[in-house]
Design a protein around this nucleic acid. Structure first.
Length: 289
DNA sequence: GTGTTTGTTATCAA
DNA sequence: CTTGATAACAAACA
């Protein structure tokens, strides 16, 4: 599940690889995730000049002025590879992973392939086909940037004064609050649980009932949890890989997500799992209040 | 065959 | 109008 740290890891990786390279071909292998006609038409002989991100959404600025929007949703991957030599087709189509940290592409989940003039390629893989690629105008992209997303963590605009105001007259559970992209951009199920653990607050409490100090803790934890995960290049549960096909290193630093039945590292109680806001919700019954 | 996994949105209710 | 809750989507795995 790529969330802000994972998507930002990919953005930074690809920024070093694909900028200003001439795109010679855009192949769409699955109509559900993108329009072949649209992508081929706009991208051929074009190039990416800048890679932007808002929450979990990527926008690749094109030399021609438009943008390629990319959303990875749950199982999307963007993997860049230098020119591939095809030796044994069996190996390529056999499985996805060569080793625990490298990914073989193309594979059966490859939905779109971009080829650059130097022979290198960018693969868009998506097992569940929830993700998409789409061309939009600059105006459309700017409207999405402004209207579809709330404050952006890890930027100057992410200030406590601003964060605090969002809590006013809301009745939702903290979990739903943190998952709402229109409030705070980029938080998904893993980091929502981790942020609540960090703040020692139970995820199903209503935001209206929080004290100022608790809101402050949620604010500080949103920052620290996301920053630390980004530093570790994201969490790989099953599908996430960075821009060159390698796994993230943050999995073993998670405190509650995926640790049901294990001991809390802070107080020793057993981590529990329940459901809130329609999502699996992990927490420590000992030190979260 | 059933239940579970999640990012986002459509839909419905209040 | 807004807010909140829920189902639905897709595919794999236990």
């Amino acid at each position: 599940m790529p969330e802000l740290p994972e998507v930002e890891t990919i953005r930074r990786d690809l920024e070093k690889k694909i900028l200003n390279k001439k795109i010679v071909q855009a192949q769409v292998l699955d109509k559900k995730v993108a329009s072949g006609q649209e992508l081929a038409g706009v991208l051929k002989n074009n190039s990416f000049v800048r890679l932007e991100r808002r929450g979990k959404l990527l926008a690749f600025a094109l030399k021609s002025g438009q943008y390629l929007l990319v959303h990875l949703k749950m199982t999307g991957q963007l993997v860049y590879k230098l020119k591939i030599k095809y030796q044994k087709s069996k190996m390529i189509y056999g499985g996805h992973q060569i080793s625990s940290s490298d990914l073989l592409v193309p594979n059966k989940f490859t939905r779109v392939i971009f080829t650059f003039s130097d022979g290198s390629q960018l693969f868009f893989n998506d097992l569940r086909r929830f993700g998409y690629m789409k061309i939009v105008t600059k105006a459309e992209k700017e409207k999405i940037w402004e209207k579809d997303f709330g404050i952006e963590p890890l930027t100057k605009e992410f200030k406590f004064e601003k964060f605090k105001e969002l809590f006013a007259k809301r009745q939702v559970k903290i979990k739903a609050f943190l998952l709402n992209q229109k409030i705070v951009a980029g938080i998904g199920n893993i980091y929502a649980d981790e942020i609540c653990f960090c703040a020692r607050i139970l995820p199903w409490r209503k935001v209206s009932g929080l004290k100022k100090e608790e809101i402050k803790k949620l604010f500080l934890c949103s920052n620290s949890v996301l920053k630390r995960a980004l530093k570790n290049r994201g969490t790989t549960f099953k599908d996430f890989v960075d821009g060159v096909g390698k796994s993230g290193k943050h999995l073993n630093f998670l405190n509650v997500y995926g640790r049901t039945g294990e001991k809390c590292r802070r107080c020793g109680k057993i981590i529990k799992k329940t459901k809130h806001a329609g999502r699996g919700t992990h927490y420590c019954p000992g030190c979260q209040k």
